[in-house]
Write a protein that binds this DNA or RNA. Structure first.
Lengths: 162, 162
DNA sequence: CAAATAAGGATAAATAATATCCGTATTGGG
DNA sequence: CCCAATACGGATATTATTTATCCTTATTTG
């Protein structure tokens, strides 16, 4: 059980978009080039972000994507769920109903106890992702990344932003 | 990203094994029949449990599996990791190194900040799974499952246990 | 009007999950 | 001692998912 690489790409793209000056857009092409990933496939991830309303898009030359709201109001969970979907990571197939001793008429009261425990863990995972915003990530990155690299990257992006 | 169905099967099988009288074994065949799942494929899941030393196995007629230690000392995480592996659910491909502004000689200090946050959530998931034992599960099930069904299932299993 | 873009459908390739089959070694019961 | 039942592991097949590419359409900027 491994998350799609699109999750990683989407998070990195959101990080870049969060650094854009207000109102500017950045294209799929620029994002793909910056991260060294295939443009056509990255495009699918960005479309997922768009459908989840995490980003706005605009057409034409100088078109592209920007965050649809402040980075402080977008969590890791928002991005992960936009790409992976909101379904739980554990699916209960209710195999308890295959118990040969179970009366045909018997109707289970609620979800299987095993599923409930697995779903609780799933929720713990989501709660952790929900607790971190893109703004918090950027704050961390600003401390960690050398100033020169940070600045040159900003310039690179700005040169390509519509 | 969805867990293998073998995880569900393994958890249900461990539940049954936890209910066995001390020293008795239950075969793959019986476990497969009880849960209505394919015997040959379930066998792979049980082999995973065996390799992880969560269960002991014995050969020959009246052979099968039993828990290798008390149910109170086996957590959901033990079972999940036995089947799914211990690898983290988020893989960092370090695409930050593709940044066109990054000097060729530049050496990253530590893991990517994005990966660290994803791994923290992964750890929250594992911590939740680690906190629940098979013994706790059984305690819950004893309350939820009708006594008649509980007893008839016990008998069914006991009739087939070596 | 031309070039660049997002969006989305169709398709292909690669990988992982699900499943079956078979041979081997081991064990308990007759 | 022999036979049947078993765990184990390897090989293979089938299906679903992930990864990726290609192409068409509508839209927008200059």
């Amino acid at each position: 059980m491994i998350l799609k690489s699109q999750v990683e790409w989407a998070l990195h793209c959101c990080t870049i978009l969060a650094g854009l000056p207000n109102g500017r857009y950045l294209s799929t092409k620029a994002l793909a080039e910056f991260h060294g990933v295939p443009k056509e496939y990255l495009s699918k991830a960005l479309q997922s972000l768009s459908q989840a309303k995490l980003v706005d898009s605009t057409l034409g030359p100088s078109g592209g994507y920007r965050l649809s709201r402040p980075a402080a109001e977008i969590s890791f969970l928002d991005v992960v769920e936009a790409v992976e979907g909101k379904e739980r990571t554990f699916v209960c197939n209710n195999i308890r109903t295959n118990n040969p001793c179970r009366p045909k008429s018997y109707c289970e009261a609620g979800p299987c106890a095993i599923a409930r425990i697995m779903w609780e863990a799933d929720e713990a995972w989501r709660a952790s992702l929900r607790s971190v915003t893109l703004a918090a990530l950027i704050q961390t990155l600003e401390k960690e990344i050398p100033v020169t690299l940070w600045q040159s990257s900003s310039e690179w992006v700005l040169n390509r932003a519509g």
